[in-house]
Amino acid sequence: MQLPPLSARPAVSYVMPVLNEAEFLESAVHTILAQDYLGAKEIILALAESSDGTTEIAERLAATDPRVRLVDNPERDIPAGLNHAIAASTHPVIVRVDAHSELTPDYTTLAVAALQRSDVPGIANVGGIMRAAGRGDVQRAIARSYNSPFGLGGGAYHGDGTPGPAESAYLGVFRREAVAAVGGYDRAILRGEDWELNLRLRRAGFTVWFDPALQVTYWPRASFADLARQFFATGTWRAVLVRKYGRANPWRFFAPGALVLGLAVSLASLVLFCAGVLPWASAWPVLLVPAALYVAGILLAVIRIPEQRGLRDRLLTAVTLVTMHLSWGTGFLRGIAFGGGRVVDRSRVE
């Protein structure tokens, strides 16, 4: 679908849902204000009710810079917050930003240039590379797994690549007309809202564009408990997307759920074997093969993933991968069976 051409230097609205982000919010806003983009800018922070001083930080930022404006997000959910921020914004280009992400200085300039490409019709959204980073040993292990295909799988924005049409985009730099044409974010999808919006954009005839020159630093969860809660919610809502859109979902959405089922079969076979119900000749294929293949995969990942410095790092990497896979897979099976309900990631809240 064609879009009207942008001006040479279109004004940009940055939209950010914010909930309990006292540790990250100020840095995230400063990376926006430090963008080298020469067009007009505004930042809309959609504030949910926080308990860690985030609101006070946001109010101080808004008081010191008129480009920062605040709107309420009473629902506390990300899609609702994004829609509130977009509704309050005014400019033709919308840049989604997360409070726990930091943009490189040239991010907006490069993204707007991609939106202005005349050789690719209908570019409605542009995204680039998410580079996870960590400060402590556990957060660094989680970041390594985010950055590896052994952790999050095949999304282009988790690794390097060449510019081109994409299935989805991390965060995203959007044409306002395109977002309006498909109705914005679906407030009923509490996780995976980016993928779902990009699917509707593509189905409407727009192009989602990947450009690896765009770089975003992402600060992941810093504990295994928080990671498990995050990935359980993510798996649950991926299942909701599978239920809603069927074959439009990539195969990788199904892999963690299949893994959990395989390991469950192994465990059940072990119980039946120990109870004398299954003879060894019948039990060993289902008892050993799924678990053995998974252990072998984890060992391979621990060997291949870079930036590990000794046995402790490798053990932390293994724990991270198992936490990611099993939490996502368990959540996925829950979502397939029961839907999303009110399962939501509150790992940054408690």
Score class of each variant (00 low, 15 high):
residue 137 D to I: 13
residue 116 Q to I: 10
residue 132 A to D: 00
residue 148 S to T: 13
residue 124 A to Y: 13
residue 149 P to M: 03
residue 152 L to G: 03
residue 136 G to T: 13
residue 161 G to R: 01
residue 106 D to M: 13
residue 135 R to N: 14
residue 96 R to A: 05
residue 98 D to I: 07
residue 107 Y to A: 01
residue 154 G to M: 05
residue 135 R to G: 15
residue 96 R to I: 03
residue 153 G to W: 06
residue 134 G to K: 04
residue 112 V to Q: 01
residue 120 V to F: 00
residue 143 A to R: 01
residue 105 P to W: 03
residue 149 P to Q: 11
residue 127 G to M: 08
residue 142 I to D: 09
residue 132 A to V: 11
residue 111 A to T: 02
residue 169 A to P: 04
residue 136 G to I: 04
residue 167 E to A: 10
residue 142 I to G: 07
residue 147 N to F: 01
residue 97 V to R: 00
residue 161 G to A: 08
residue 94 I to H: 01
residue 147 N to D: 09
residue 127 G to S: 05
residue 140 R to E: 11
residue 158 H to T: 06
residue 133 A to Q: 10
residue 160 D to I: 09
residue 91 H to S: 15
residue 167 E to R: 12
residue 161 G to T: 06
residue 113 A to N: 14
residue 90 T to S: 11
residue 122 G to N: 15
residue 98 D to L: 15
residue 144 R to I: 07
residue 142 I to R: 11
residue 161 G to I: 09
residue 109 T to S: 09
residue 135 R to Q: 14
residue 167 E to Q: 13
residue 141 A to L: 00
residue 148 S to L: 05
residue 94 I to D: 00
residue 159 G to S: 08
residue 152 L to K: 08
residue 140 R to M: 07
residue 108 T to K: 07
residue 147 N to L: 05
residue 92 P to L: 03
residue 138 V to P: 00
residue 153 G to T: 13
residue 128 G to T: 06
residue 167 E to I: 04
residue 160 D to C: 04
residue 126 V to A: 01
residue 122 G to S: 11
residue 98 D to T: 14
residue 169 A to E: 09
residue 109 T to D: 10
residue 147 N to C: 09
residue 157 Y to A: 02
residue 99 A to P: 04
residue 107 Y to C: 00
residue 168 S to L: 06
residue 111 A to S: 08
residue 105 P to G: 04
residue 135 R to D: 15
residue 118 S to T: 14
residue 157 Y to N: 02
residue 111 A to M: 05
residue 125 N to E: 13
residue 169 A to I: 09
residue 118 S to P: 04
residue 119 D to H: 09
residue 131 R to I: 13
residue 120 V to K: 00
residue 163 P to Y: 00
residue 167 E to G: 06
residue 110 L to K: 08
residue 113 A to C: 10
residue 118 S to M: 08
residue 104 T to F: 09
residue 145 S to M: 12
residue 126 V to S: 01
residue 161 G to K: 02
residue 120 V to H: 02
residue 155 G to C: 06
residue 117 R to L: 06
residue 100 H to Q: 10
residue 93 V to M: 07
residue 108 T to Y: 05
residue 141 A to I: 01
residue 89 S to M: 08
residue 139 Q to T: 15
residue 126 V to G: 08
residue 103 L to E: 06
residue 153 G to I: 12
residue 162 T to C: 01
residue 149 P to S: 05
residue 109 T to V: 12
residue 95 V to N: 03
residue 165 P to S: 12
residue 117 R to H: 02
residue 89 S to C: 10
residue 90 T to A: 14
residue 154 G to A: 15
residue 145 S to E: 08
residue 115 L to F: 02
residue 156 A to V: 14
residue 129 I to R: 11
